[in-house]
């Protein structure tokens, strides 16, 4: 056997394949970042500069005027009270919807994972496949139901609708999470004499902060970004921010103030974006949750 000379490890100074990969990713990144950049620079320009200049050029003179106007005085066609009305409406819709839908779905998912009873899986399967049905199919009957319940065109009405349509994905999320916890833990707790609620609150909930975070992220972004349910069920004076934003930007009267529009757009996107940038991996888990098989 001959002894091979000891070679030095080849140094990769230039690897064309990898350069290509980075190039493609960088180009894609520009495509993705461009709108955000345009939004920000436009919102910081004065109207004359918007009209004369280039949408990609940075503002010559930075002004926060459009932001103030978008928040406080922009007109939606009927009123000129800015986006703040929509912001507070969205908050009033968001908080109860998130809390109620998660409370119901978590208990539901827990019941489905540990306290199986006949028929439960059937309902659950219909619920999951039902979530693929276009909302339009269920809209009109839901209008009738909410009207009969006396909650059509109110905050309660839109919260009710968000709770219903949040149920499939959240129940799936919680059911899958609880199903991944060891069954023996549940058995041990039963031998230890804990009941349905005792096991849920003392054993399961303390083990589940990550999934609650995922659920909150999912619901906050989903409900905040909703347009359809808000415009139908909330009633004119309770319109959420997305609806108001659309009314401000697409209201036909007067001169279009693109800088104000862009500021309003950023403001509307700010809440989910903040959630997104702060939550990182949880957001990915949340959106991937829908793709996880039940």
């Amino acid at each position: 056997m001959s002894i091979e000379p000891i070679g030095t490890r080849p140094r990769r100074t230039f690897d064309p394949t990898r350069m290509m990969i980075y190039l493609v990713l960088a180009v894609a990144a520009i495509y993705y970042l461009l709108p955000l950049y345009v939004m920000i620079v436009t919102s910081l320009k004065g109207m004359p500069e918007v009209r004369l200049g280039n949408i990609f050029s940075p503002p010559v003179e930075i002004t926060f005027e459009p932001w103030a106007k978008a928040w406080d005085t922009a007109c939606t066609g009927l009123y000129c009270e800015g986006l703040k009305v929509g912001f507070w409406n969205s908050m009033q819709i968001l908080i109860p919807s998130v809390v109620i839908s998660i409370a119901i779905a978590s208990v539901n998912g827990y019941a489905l994972s540990f306290w199986r009873f006949r028929g439960a899986e059937v309902f659950f399967t219909i619920l999951i496949f039902g979530s693929f049905i276009p909302y339009q199919v269920m809209l009109y009957p839901l209008v009738i139901i909410t009207r009969e319940l006396g909650i059509f065109g109110s905050l309660t009405g839109v919260i009710f609708i968000h709770t219903i349509f949040g149920m499939p994905i959240l129940t799936l999320l919680f059911r899958n999470y609880f199903a991944s916890l060891p069954q023996e833990l549940f058995k041990a707790a039963r031998v230890d004499g804990a009941g349905f609620w005792g096991i849920f609150f003392k054993i399961m909930v303390p083990m589940s902060p990550p999934i609650f975070v995922v659920a909150i992220i999912l619901q906050v972004t989903g409900i905040w970004n909703d347009f359809l349910f808000g415009v139908i069920f909330a009633g004119t004076k309770n319109f959420p921010m997305t609806v108001q934003l659309n009314n401000i930007v697409n209201s036909s009267q007067g001169v279009k103030e693109y800088n104000v529009n862009m500021a309003a757009t950023i403001l509307t996107g700010a809440v989910p974006l903040a959630i997104y940038f702060l939550s990182g991996k949880y957001f990915v888990r949340g959106i991937a949750a829908g793709a996880v098989k039940g």
Binding site: P182, E184, L185, K187, A188, A189, V191, K202, I203
Partner: peptide, 9 residues
Amino acid sequence: MVFQSYALY
């Protein structure tokens, strides 16, 4: 009862 996975809380 004692379980395989210990099942400690």
